[in-house]
Amino acid sequence: MKAKDVVAAIHLRIRITPEIAFGPGKADLLEGIRDTGSIAAAGRRMRMSYKRAWQLVEELNRLFDAPLVSASKGGVRGGGAELTRAGADVLARYRRMQADCSKAVRADLVALRRHRS
Rank of each mutant, 00 (worst) to 15 (best):
A111I: 00
C101D: 01
L60F: 05
V7S: 08
S49Q: 11
R113K: 12
A88Y: 07
A88T: 14
A71D: 03
A21F: 09
R93A: 11
M46I: 13
A42T: 12
V76A: 15
E31I: 02
S117R: 10
R114L: 09
E59H: 02
G87S: 08
K103V: 07
Q55A: 11
P67Q: 08
K73D: 04
P24L: 10
T36N: 12
K4A: 09
S102P: 00
L56H: 10
S102C: 06
H115M: 14
E82D: 12
G25V: 11
A92W: 06
V69K: 03
I16V: 15
I20S: 02
R95I: 01
A42M: 13
I20Q: 03
A8M: 05
G75K: 11
F64H: 04
A88G: 15
R106W: 02
R52D: 13
R52Y: 13
S72F: 01
I16L: 15
T36S: 14
R114W: 00
A53E: 07
V105Y: 07
G79Q: 05
V57L: 09
R114S: 12
R34M: 13
D5R: 02
T17E: 03
F64Y: 13
R15A: 15
A111N: 11
M97V: 01
A42G: 13
D108F: 13
K73P: 02
D89V: 08
I39D: 02
L91V: 13
D35A: 15
M48S: 04
A53K: 09
R44N: 12
S49R: 12
L12V: 06
G25W: 03
D100Y: 04
I39N: 05
R47P: 00
R47I: 07
L63N: 13
G87A: 07
P24T: 08
Y50D: 15
D89I: 05
T17M: 06
G87C: 11
S38E: 08
N61P: 04
G79A: 07
G74K: 08
A3F: 01
V110W: 00
I33Y: 06
I14Q: 14
A104H: 10
Q55I: 05
A8C: 05
H11M: 08
L68V: 11
L109H: 10
G78C: 11
L12C: 08
R113S: 01
D5S: 06
F64A: 02
A41G: 04
H11W: 07
L112T: 00
A104N: 02
G74F: 00
A42V: 12
K26T: 10
S49V: 11
E19F: 07
P24Y: 02
R106V: 15
D28I: 01
V6E: 07
F22L: 13
L60W: 03
G80L: 09
V7N: 05
R95F: 01
Q98S: 07
L12R: 12
G37Y: 03
L56A: 02
A99Y: 06
E59I: 01
D65N: 09
R116V: 14
R45W: 01
R45S: 12
P24W: 03
L29Q: 11
P24R: 08
A9I: 03
A66Q: 15
R95Q: 15
M97I: 01
S70C: 09
L91K: 07
K26S: 11
L56T: 06
I16H: 08
A53V: 10
R77C: 03
D100N: 12
L68E: 02
R77W: 11
K51F: 02
D100K: 14
V57Q: 04
